[in-house]
Amino acid sequence: MPREPLIIGEMIHHTPEGDIAEPMALATQRREAKRGKYTFLVVQCPLCGELHEHSDGDGSRVPHCAGRKPFSGEYYVIGADQHAVPATTPYPKLKKPLKRAA
């Protein structure tokens, strides 16, 4: 069952065609992969509220829920400076959604 999105702010990109605003998501966990020598981020999606895994590093990401209709665009992930936890660490519990101002 989808949860309410957790939005912590917006990243504004200034382009020649105008400003583009992307919702921001804070990585809830930085993890080591089971195989290989890389890390990835676990993010509570600001579009659908579920957990998604993304490549390490801050920046724009296409959400894994992008195949759902209607497509909601991208979001900006921050928090890649966290210490990576071992691959055997449980995934984080989903955070409660923020109340949106009316």
Results as ranks from 00 to 15, higher is better:
M1C: 11
M1G: 13
P2A: 01
R3E: 14
E4H: 13
E4D: 14
P5H: 06
L6K: 04
L6E: 04
G9N: 12
G9R: 11
E10M: 05
M11N: 08
M11H: 15
M11W: 09
I12A: 03
P16E: 15
P16H: 07
E17L: 09
D19A: 03
I20G: 04
E22K: 07
A25F: 10
L26T: 11
R30G: 00
R31D: 13
R31E: 12
A33R: 07
K34D: 15
R35Y: 08
G36P: 11
G36K: 04
K37H: 13
K37T: 12
Y38D: 15
T39R: 08
T39H: 11
F40A: 00
F40C: 02
F40W: 09
C45M: 04
P46N: 02
P46H: 07
C48E: 13
C48A: 07
C48N: 08
C48Y: 09
C48Q: 09
C48P: 14
G49K: 06
G49W: 04
E53R: 10
D56A: 06
G57M: 01
D58N: 13
D58H: 07
D58Y: 10
G59V: 08
S60T: 14
S60D: 06
R61S: 01
V62Y: 08
P63R: 02
P63M: 01
P63T: 10
H64R: 02
H64S: 06
A66D: 13
R68P: 01
K69R: 11
K69W: 11
P70Y: 02
P70K: 01
G73D: 12
G73L: 00
Y75T: 00
Y76G: 00
Y76T: 00
V77R: 00
V77W: 13
V77E: 07
I78E: 13
I78N: 00
A80E: 11
A80C: 13
A80W: 10
Q82S: 01
A84V: 03
T88H: 10
T89L: 05
T89K: 09
P90S: 03
P90Y: 02
Y91I: 02
P92H: 05
L94H: 04
L94Y: 08
K95A: 12
K95G: 11
K95N: 13
K95W: 07
K96A: 13
L98K: 14
L98Q: 12
K99I: 09
A101N: 12
